[in-house]
Design a protein around this nucleic acid. Sequence first.
DNA 1: CGTACCGTTGAGGTGAGTCAAAGTAAGTGG
DNA 2: CCACTTACTTTGACTCACCTCAACGGTACG
Lengths: 241, 241
Amino acid sequence: MEYKFRLRRSFPFSATEKDTEWDGFTPSEVELLDRKTIRRKYAPGDFIFHQDDTPSGIFCIEGGYVLLSRMDASGNETTFGIFGPNETIGHRSFFASDLHVATARAITHCFSYLIPTDTVRQLFELNLELAWWFLRTVASDRGPLDGLLLRGSKVSARVRFIHMLLVLRDRFAQTDANGHLVFELPLSRVEIANMLGVTPETITRTLRELQDENLAIIHGRTVIVPRPDLLERASEPNVSF
Amino acid sequence: MEYKFRLRRSFPFSATEKDTEWDGFTPSEVELLDRKTIRRKYAPGDFIFHQDDTPSGIFCIEGGYVLLSRMDASGNETTFGIFGPNETIGHRSFFASDLHVATARAITHCFSYLIPTDTVRQLFELNLELAWWFLRTVASDRGPLDGLLLRGSKVSARVRFIHMLLVLRDRFAQTDANGHLVFELPLSRVEIANMLGVTPETITRTLRELQDENLAIIHGRTVIVPRPDLLERASEPNVSF
DNA sequence: CGTACCGTTGAGGTGAGTCAAAGTAAGTGG
DNA sequence: CCACTTACTTTGACTCACCTCAACGGTACG
């Protein structure tokens, strides 16, 4: 039997995942998932859900990248995170029985599964261990917390940006033949600015500053870091060069 | 039989709580809790746990108030929240199998229960619904998230302070005979500043500004708000007076 | 009556915001 | 393949909210 849900590292509903505590689904549960989940396709800029919507279930991203952000009354957009393949979004609001706090917007072509509310409920009834797994997931999400720590006014835009690079390294950077870190960021200047809580102009200026100091080479959305080791030092707020 | 754990609204381990999904403890489980929890007394300034400590269990505050904050390498302290009676602290790190991200410090005389790691584990084995309850608790904690939203550089210290008042209203404010809101804040200027991500001097100046505009009357840690309705309007970042 | 902590006040500096304009890249249609 | 539109990015000049540093006043406590 062929399931839509195959082996996927850290995919919470994977029936065959061996690396997590979470491989206890029975065939009937997997069948339920397969039958009820809704697969959707999104183009860049498409919304997956909006802030203040009532959650209609939990989304699992199959491919592509999604930004979670919130816009306040004055039009300031704050981005909390970028999520990619095999990550779930929308679960926090779901479990808090809350309206969506954030808007999810695809920034690349994107596929996601929606596990509808009723199906999630049924799964929890069938298998209470699911709560334990999600408890770990939600508790481990330090996104907003780390963001908060970086927003002290004493933390410069420069340090925030470098910190962002460190966080995104695993997903968007590769090491080339010369040992340089090459980032292919899927984010516009505006989106970066919203992640760091500054303006796009500040991003431009910060990038030029880093370039002038030979800490990075910038080409559009490509950022090349010749000396990755210096990055870590530069992310210490009080280290001067 | 008399238990240490009595009826307490929203106390997660309450055996008799009827308002939540969480009243399913059996007598033997309650007995386990009673036997294993450790009650401790703290004076103002005492630490309950330190950042980067290994969690030794979950703490429930019986009485008094506790600040959760983190200090970075340059000595900046960021406070995420203030917690009081019947609230649990330390659970996020616990469930994430992480070191404590924050330091918990008593700001008043304070009693708390520590439910040790082993006891929590036993309780989860006895009663998996506990995971479901904590999932709701952790998911509902919007503390760091709300904090993050207030740290956009476009949000002034003034708006942040007013927002803090609104958040603390339920706990620390009473309405007097004239319909004025009277806050008795248990926080020093420095502690307020750390909550808002500004300096203590800015707090002083902001308070004087509010006083000059007759929006508040300040006496030490007492803040009287003559027109509570104006507060809500003033917390909208883009409303001008 | 010092010591310590907290809070206030002032003067001066600065990082980042704002506004406006020009430059660049990417896609569309003829 | 080129003109045209649209969105994104950069740059510069100016402004300002908040930080920094330093001094001083108040209150509690041994």
